[in-house]
Design a protein around this nucleic acid. Structure first.
Lengths: 213, 213
DNA sequence: TTTGAACCTGACCAAACGGTCAAGATAAAT
DNA sequence: ATTTATCTTGACCGTTTGGTCAGGTTCAAA
């Protein structure tokens, strides 16, 4: 663990650790998504990650510690998707960009969203600290931006929290409830074309709904 | 209690059974909502229902059977809320009525919604049969009604499934993610006034979003 | 009053679980 | 070459869990 100026110094061991951690975290995300915190077993996570169970506990002391790491990874991914709010174009473009980014995340990485869903439905027992600080600050910032748009007459006078909750709920629904959507779609996952249409519909209804088209 | 003031015809035994079943089902709904299928324990359900654990298994053979009953109860409640679609007034009134009924259910009985959320996020393992028959038939019926409204030029040409998913997601969000909303609201549950405002905002954004105002 | 069906429950069990550990294997530092 | 630190893993353990069961109680029909 010493800082070294020799490039090859301990690089192999470090690579092993990194690769194992990544592999275990990816497996944990899938298994927690499929079974929730209590339902997921370290044995199953080890099996998916293709390592012995004892090795999971070597890299992550407890199941809870592993779970917390997964939760944090998911949330930081979402906050990145919200960078569109920093742009200085018109509200319609900004909101469209955010909704589309959120929909794309539900499509590309649904597991993380489902872990988050399990966690919140269960009462946010492990993540309430994180939500009440980092996430709340972020949300309040966006709400202020929306209030400014309303004050400037650029959009309808809607309650910004209601709007943001609608965006959260609708976009994440395509990840969290994908099994239900799949059944309604004749036991077929949404095709790329179907998903693109859904995305456009979501954007259109919300933008028009707040008077932005 | 003497035989004379007891109901005739074995009604007392039937009443005992009914009351115990109701009590256990109510407790199960709460516990499943808080912990999911795997995380919930029959011991905890028995404790909340105020009966010995063995009695839970006397009335419901397995934990899975109990869970299935809870799931079905929730869903049939939702289907009832959709009776508004049978009315013969204008689309705006019908949709408003449905959204409001769904929001009210999220407010009055959030536990059932959260059990459903756990179940679907986990992959609908126990409910896929029910969804692909009863629920799908119901949904397809509403979709046909919406398509007719569109054909008659009464509302915008939006994909009806996308619209219904948005209504599902947004209304159920207020039950399923209430712990998150509570944190964003300064660690206070939404007051009646706040919830009424949220409800009105949801109705307004969606109705305007599909061209119904 | 008798009889049998339905209800009740403390005590129990096999299986599954998160986590531990000792002993060995591998890589890095000296 | 030797030592030291990290990585690996099968075997193991105490606890929790869903479910069982025998023996008891209550109720209502005959």
């Amino acid at each position: 663990m010493t800082a070294s100026n020799r490039p090859a110094n301990g690089a192999h061991k470090a690579a092993i650790r990194l690769e194992n951690e990544v592999q275990i975290l990816a497996a944990a995300e899938r298994v927690f998504a499929d079974f929730g915190f209590k339902g997921a077993t370290t044995a199953r996570i080890a099996e998916v990650a293709n390592v012995p169970k004892a090795n999971v506990h070597y890299y992550f002391a407890t199941k809870e510690a592993l779970y917390r790491r997964v939760i944090e990874n998911v949330c930081s991914q979402w906050l990145e998707a919200a960078m569109t709010f920093e742009n200085t174009t018109d509200p319609a473009t900004i909101l469209r960009g955010y909704i589309e980014a959120k929909m794309d995340l539900s499509r590309s990485t649904p597991y993380g969203s489902r872990v988050w869903a399990h966690e919140i439905v269960r009462g946010a027992k492990f993540s309430s600290d994180y939500i009440s600080t980092t996430v709340k600050d972020w949300l309040d910032g966006r709400v202020r931006i929306i209030r400014r748009w309303i004050a400037e007459g650029k959009m309808d006078d809607v309650e910004p929290y209601s709007l943001m909750y609608m965006i959260f709920a609708t976009t994440q629904h395509y990840a969290d409830f994908s099994s239900q959507i799949e059944i309604f779609n004749g036991n077929q996952p949404l095709s790329d074309a179907q998903f693109a249409e859904a995305k456009e519909n979501v954007v259109r209804i919300i933008l028009r709904g707040v008077g932005l088209t």
